[in-house]
Design a protein around this nucleic acid. Structure first.
Lengths: 191, 191
DNA sequence: TAAATTCGTTCACTTAAGTTAAGAAATGAA
DNA sequence: TTCATTTCTTAACTTAAGTGAACGAATTTA
């Protein structure tokens, strides 16, 4: 299981045997049940998450309503804002399915101890920023229906494994609108 | 003018006099007229931009229509995807106003020559990623009207200095809808 | 297993954005 | 300065999302 994490990191920076051992010893592997909350709004935490198996999500609670903004599945890394900004978190993180995750700690002087880790973080942030930018641009420039069809192409698994009402807020609409939109698409494809 | 760039960088990493000189000598300051295109779709470029004065924007052309996705004003840094991914750009960058920008080059071994530059890039990417994430989340969880009111709070200058049709696509709507929405808000505030 | 809650869908109705078109105002170029 | 183009607004109509409610299905929990 540790190999997956080491393998993931090795795609970005080459690691010595010692470094591999250090990572494995630093990281804790946690098995979490569906619905478990890993981080709550208002909490401080320096934890970084890497999904080995399963699915976790981030969501806000606005006017008592859950607004899911992101899903993280196998081989996805999640760095909560509060881990780098040391402000309290303004969102929640919880498990969509039974999952196995690796939880790392954001230590104060980690970059001095492991300069390679800074390179890894730079590359990951840059890559993520680029992806995020593209996602945002696509979101802005398309309608809810297009966004749903786009999701079907890019992350077909999500549509299957995630509850519809969570998907809806991820797409920026209400659950009823997602239902209707799907019925509309089905209707079109019949004709 | 160089001081602004050095000052900006100094907020993130401390610089020696030699490093300051190196930055100033590496960077080119360009004065660009309103409407000038700095980067076109399909082009390859390793240029990084830092806005000293004025405003530049990124936009896609989709079905012959311009879709503005971001604005960069004083003290904003813009790292185009193509500069880090070495794929051709899929968007345009152009000046909204007459602007003065600093154009840096993304060199191959820059991080080996200047380890501090890697720290700078990591911090900037992390910070930007966090901001971007929050922006995206806010966008998803609010209506066009809320987004416009939000923009009025957060970047009131943009609403003044940027053409309405560019603002509209930035808000994810059509120019006509923005006009109507503004009229609606005005109507509400009267009553 | 039974009751209670949550979830997904459908419906009717309301609200707001997209679309097409037209005209006025501002801007830029000859 | 004048003409042409672009930009902004308004309007009428169309389309789709929000809202509130209802109901069956699925899932939890007692």
């Amino acid at each position: 299981m540790q190999d997956l994490l080491v393998g993931f990191i090795s795609r970005y920076v080459s690691l010595t045997e010692d470094e591999k051992k250090a990572i494995v010893s630093l990281d804790i592997f946690r098995s979490v049940k569906k619905g478990t909350t890993l981080l709550k709004e208002g909490q401080h935490s320096k934890d970084l998450y890497f999904v080995i198996k399963g699915c976790i999500r981030t969501y806000y609670i606005i006017d008592g309503e859950e607004k899911t903004t992101a899903f993280y599945t196998e081989m996805d890394a999640l760095t909560p804002h509060c881990a780098i900004s040391n402000a309290p978190s303004d969102y929640f993180i919880s498990a969509v399915e039974d999952s196995i995750i690796s939880v790392g700690e954001m230590e104060v002087n980690i970059f001095e101890k492991f300069p390679k880790f800074e390179t890894l973080c730079r590359i990951l942030s840059e890559e993520l920023l680029a992806k995020q930018q593209i996602n945002f641009d696509e979101f802005k420039t398309s309608s809810p229906e297009q966004r749903y069809l786009n999701l079907l192409q890019k992350r077909p698994d999500l549509v299957q494994r995630v509850p519809q009402h969570q998907l809806a807020s991820f797409l920026g609409i209400k659950p009823q609108s997602l239902s209707r939109l799907r019925a509309r698409i089905l209707e079109k494809s019949k004709r």
